[in-house]
Design a protein around this nucleic acid. Sequence first.
DNA 1: CACCGATATTTCGGCAAACGAACCTTGCTC
DNA 2: GAGCAAGGTTCGTTTGCCGAAATATCGGTG
Lengths: 167, 167
Amino acid sequence: MSQPPAIPRTDAALIALRRILRATEHYERDLAQAAKLTPAKLRVLQILAGTETRSAMPTQLSTQMGVSQATVTALVDQLDKLGLTQRQRSSTDRRQLHVILTDAGLEALRNAPDALQQHFVTGFQALQDWEQAMLVASLERVAAMLNAQGIDASPLLTLGDISRPRG
Amino acid sequence: MSQPPAIPRTDAALIALRRILRATEHYERDLAQAAKLTPAKLRVLQILAGTETRSAMPTQLSTQMGVSQATVTALVDQLDKLGLTQRQRSSTDRRQLHVILTDAGLEALRNAPDALQQHFVTGFQALQDWEQAMLVASLERVAAMLNAQGIDASPLLTLGDISRPRG
DNA sequence: CACCGATATTTCGGCAAACGAACCTTGCTC
DNA sequence: GAGCAAGGTTCGTTTGCCGAAATATCGGTG
């Protein structure tokens, strides 16, 4: 417990952070393979699943994912081809497009439980209440620190619904 | 204010985690651009810089980075071409190879301060002592949760030296 | 209605990262 | 020295991403 800090705290934190990042990278890849979907495509599906309408516009997707529109187009192209999403022009503004998650898409998501979540959730839920609280606070703090410089801003609703496949 | 947990804790944690990941991805790319190096190449240099001998064998690199040997070969090819690393066959076993960080490579690293660290360190050091402690504990916990399932185990010494450009 | 500027998306060409499989080298063992 | 294992490399391909240019649409203005 009270060890003299052999490793300065900053470094310890950084190392932990790195480890998290690396672990996640891998999970994402494994997961994607299991689901026969690539990470990026999976992310799209997850975002869509997280919306009320199960749909979103490309611009929205590109913002939330932090990639360019061109990239989104490419991804949606493929998801469409797989029948997991569907494009539909907006009736009010025909420039706009709705990318809609199909039933098949939702199904695919169900079969691809997020490995990251699996592990994390399991571990997390085993914690004491106060520990959970502390963890959340900490993570949010880190996120804030990193995010400080912009990048994001979008509320990122992605995960909420997915982790609860409420019938 | 009896807020029914709008976002359950697990989700909150997950969201924060995701945000960290996304932020980091971006930082890595920006950073790489600033340094005229791509993220992957930079990672190689960092690992090398973190060793006693400033060198490592491809297998080692591939393990630590979690990529295949083929990938490492490609990366080292390019670093070699840039004069940032150098290949040298082992004298004891000529199958083996040492990938050595050149002075130029070290220099390149110095000019490429890790953006992730910059931000994080700054923020981190502004925290109260107890907050720092809490954060470290939390991060380590998360790392442990994610790492539980193997993936790595290698001690990941990479960062220690780099974050303190004490020269 | 015809034209203009802004907005939303797609197309195109290109680069980096990564993989698996096939293939050399080298060392070790019998 | 034949054969096998280990360490690397080569080759062909996939994925993810981008910027720039093209396309389509909307909302005015005259």
